[in-house]
C-alpha cells in the first residue's frame, strides 16, 4: 500500500512536471523550470483549404525558458520566455545553371513572451481543475529579413483565458493520468481570436514519463485577411491545426531530467505542414 501511495505521489509530481497545460498547480514555494529547444523546418504548408502546397524551405528555432512557481497553495505564476528565436529561409539555386536565384535569409531576436497566473479552482484526489489568464507580449519581430517576411513573433498583444482539468487513475499497478483543456485567446492588431482545446494522457513508468497530447486551434475568422500581410508559417493569421504530440521525459535525478517531443499536425490551415521537434532540460524545486 505504501508503495502504491509513493507511486501515486510520483505520478502527481510527474504530472506537475509535465507543463502548465494540466489542471494541477504548483504547491506554495515549489517550482518547475525548463530550458527547451524547439524547431520546425518546412518545405510545405497547409493552405486555407487544408491542402498541402510546397514552399521555399523555412525554419524556426526557439530556445526558451519556461518556469512555474507556486506563490500560494492556489496560485501559480508561469513565465514562458523564448529568449532566442531564429527564423530563416533557405537560399534558392537554379537547377539549370547552379546560380543563386534568391539568397537565404535569417533573423534573430527575442520571441513573443507569455505571462500567466493560474488558479487552482479544485485540487483534490479526484480531480484537479484550474483556470488561468495569460498575457501575450509581442517581444518578437513580426517583419524581419530582407523582404520583411521572416518573423519571430506576431506583433500583437493577446489575452488568453483557459480552463484545465486533470485526473489520475489506477490501472493495476500503473497510475496513468488524463487532462483536458479549452481556452479562448483574444488577439489584437487585426488577428482573429482563437478557440484552443486539447487533451493529454500520460503514464509514469519507472524514471520515464510518457505523454501523448492532442492540441487544436480554431480561428474565429474575425480578423483581417492575410492578403496584405506577410505573416507566414507559425505566425499566419487564421492559422488552424490539430496536432498530436508524443513526449518522453526521463528523470535523471528526482529533481531534474530531460525530455524530447515530436509534434505532427494531423490537419491544418495556413501553417507549416512538417513536424516540429523539441528537446529540453527540466528542473523541479
Amino acid at each position: 500500500m505504501l508503495r502504491i501511495f509513493i507511486i501515486y505521489l510520483l505520478s502527481l509530481c510527474a504530472t506537475q512536471l509535465a507543463f502548465a497545460g494540466d489542471g494541477w498547480i504548483q504547491p506554495k514555494g515549489s517550482g518547475y523550470f525548463k530550458l527547451s529547444q524547439y524547431w520546425v523546418i518546412a518545405d510545405q504548408h497547409f493552405t486555407n483549404t487544408g491542402g498541402i502546397d510546397p514552399n521555399a524551405t523555412r525554419g524556426t528555432y526557439i530556445t526558451s525558458l519556461y518556469g512555474e512557481y507556486g506563490f500560494t497553495e492556489r496560485l501559480t505564476g508561469i513565465v514562458y520566455f523564448p529568449f532566442f528565436v531564429r527564423a530563416l529561409q533557405n537560399e534558392q539555386v537554379s537547377g539549370t545553371t547552379g546560380e543563386v536565384i534568391l539568397p537565404g535569409d535569417a533573423v534573430n531576436s527575442v520571441g513573443d513572451t507569455q505571462l500567466t497566473m493560474k488558479y487552482g479552482i479544485v485540487q483534490n484526489d479526484k480531480i484537479a481543475l484550474s483556470g488561468s489568464f495569460s498575457l501575450g507580449l509581442p517581444f518578437g519581430n513580426n517583419s524581419g529579413g530582407r523582404d520583411g517576411s521572416l518573423q519571430t513573433g506576431t506583433g500583437e498583444w493577446n489575452q488568453m483565458f483557459r480552463l484545465d482539468a486533470s485526473k489520475s487513475f489506477r490501472v493495476g499497478e500503473l497510475y496513468p493520468f488524463a487532462s483536458v483543456y479549452s481556452a479562448f485567446n483574444n488577439r489584437t492588431n487585426g488577428f482573429s481570436d482563437e478557440f484552443r482545446f486539447g487533451a493529454k494522457v500520460g503514464l509514469l513508468l519507472d524514471k520515464f514519463l510518457i505523454q501523448l497530447s492532442l492540441d487544436g486551434v480554431e480561428s474565429f475568422q474575425n480578423g483581417d485577411a492575410n492578403f496584405n500581410s506577410d505573416g507566414t508559417g507559425l505566425y499566419s493569421n487564421n492559422a488552424e491545426f490539430l496536432a498530436l504530440t508524443p513526449e518522453l521525459s526521463y528523470f535523471v535525478k528526482d529533481s531534474w531530467g530531460i525530455s524530447a517531443a515530436y509534434a505532427g499536425a494531423v490537419s491544418g490551415k495556413l501553417i507549416f505542414a512538417r513536424p516540429a521537434y523539441s528537446v529540453g532540460v527540466f528542473l523541479a524545486l
Binding site: Q37, F84, E91, Q92, I101, G104, V281
Partner: peptide, 24 residues
C-alpha cells in the same frame, strides 16, 4: 548539460540550407 544544450541549439539553428529550383 545546460551549456552543451545551448551550444548545440545555437549550432543547429545556424544553418541556412539550399533549395534547388527546377527551372529548366
Amino acid at each position: 548539460l545546460i551549456v552543451g544544450f545551448l551550444v548545440a541549439g545555437l549550432v543547429l539553428s545556424n544553418c541556412i540550407g539550399t533549395d534547388i529550383v527546377e527551372d529548366f
